[in-house]
Computed example of a mutant assay.
Amino acid sequence: MSTTTTIAGDTTGVPRFVSTAAGRGRITFVRVLHAEWIKLRSLRSTLWVLATAVFLVIALGLLVTSGTVDRWPNMSTGERERFSAPNASLTGLYLAQLAIGVLGVLVVTGEYATGSIRATMSAVPHRLPVLWAKTAVFATVTFVLMLATCLVAFVTGQAVLAKEHIDVSLGDSGVPRVVVGVAVYLAVTGVLAIGIGAIVRNAAGGIAIVFGLLLVLPEVVRALPSDWQERITKYLPSEAGQALSRWHQTEGVLSPGAGITVFALYAVGALAVAAVLLGRRDT
């Protein structure tokens, strides 16, 4: 939009056109966030992967709680003591983390694969705001969606467990931490995946690393001598992060606060490396 005006001191008397839209195209972090939100919800893979994560959390929770109810009369005293009602209904966490990890990697590597990252970096030449915006948008979407999913999985799972009167309520001690903790863990998993994706810039490589950290590394550590296992296992990404979502706290593991802090440091470390490389490498 332009308006016609006469500039003071101008002896020509010729009207000048001054744009009132000047400055409206200035790059702000809010606009970068909005652009990343549009990208995320426009991808078909986003809908399918997030839908898969939702299904896994709810379906596996129902499967495990139903199996527990069937087996409960024949369970030993030790098994009953170790049983965690809230964790049983949220067992889908173990597979949902893989779905979130895959999508987190694809959020970054998809642009490199198509070449659209060049347009993104041309629009935001400082680069780092793009990484921060991708992280913030994906972490927020993951947390909000997974928190709602965990609440549904918890309620439906406890309804199944109520048949044997072994259910718990959301108001019981430690239960809210478990439900929210699963959502937090999955959100941080997404942040870690984005960092890894930005480092390797390759979908297959990034997904392999995420799977390796969350699934393969714990199995490798279990092959070590028992005293090494005790020292190392609690500091592994998945083991540390899931401390926040465990109802029963046992010896030899990190506290909920310490555990999620260690896991967050893994994610922040990956983002820091990605940020450094993003500034040094060509798109």
Rank of each mutant, 00 (worst) to 15 (best):
Y266A: 04
R246Y: 08
A187W: 12
G25F: 05
L213G: 05
G241N: 03
G241F: 10
V191K: 11
E79D: 13
A274G: 04
Y266M: 02
A85R: 05
A223Q: 13
F29N: 03
V182S: 05
S19D: 13
A21L: 10
V182I: 11
S19W: 15
F211G: 04
L131Q: 14
I58T: 05
T91C: 06
A133M: 02
A99P: 00
W228N: 01
G61Q: 05
A187I: 13
V262E: 09
G115H: 03
K234T: 12
G197V: 06
F143A: 03
N74A: 14
S19M: 08
V268Q: 07
D282W: 12
F138T: 07
L224R: 04
L217P: 00
I7T: 09
Q249R: 14
F55E: 13
A133D: 06
R44F: 15
V32Q: 00
L60V: 08
M146V: 04
R231N: 12
A148Y: 11
I7S: 05
S84M: 04
W72E: 12
T283L: 11
Y185E: 07
D282N: 15
G206D: 04
N74L: 15
Q229H: 05
S245T: 14
V184G: 08
L161P: 00
L151Y: 11
A119G: 10
V184T: 12
F263C: 01
V191P: 09
I209W: 15
R71K: 08
D282Y: 13
G23S: 09
A35S: 11
S226G: 07
V144K: 11
G23Q: 11
V105W: 07
A159H: 14
R281Y: 02
D227E: 10
G101L: 13
L151H: 06
I117G: 02
V253F: 08
L33Y: 08
T120Y: 04
S116E: 02
R80E: 11
P218W: 08
V130R: 01
I117R: 02
F263V: 02
L98Y: 15
R231W: 10
R41K: 14
H34R: 09
L131D: 09
E230L: 03
D70K: 15
V30I: 13
F211K: 04
L90N: 03
V184C: 14
H126G: 09
S226F: 10
S122P: 12
R118F: 11
R71H: 04
A96E: 14
E79G: 01
A270C: 07
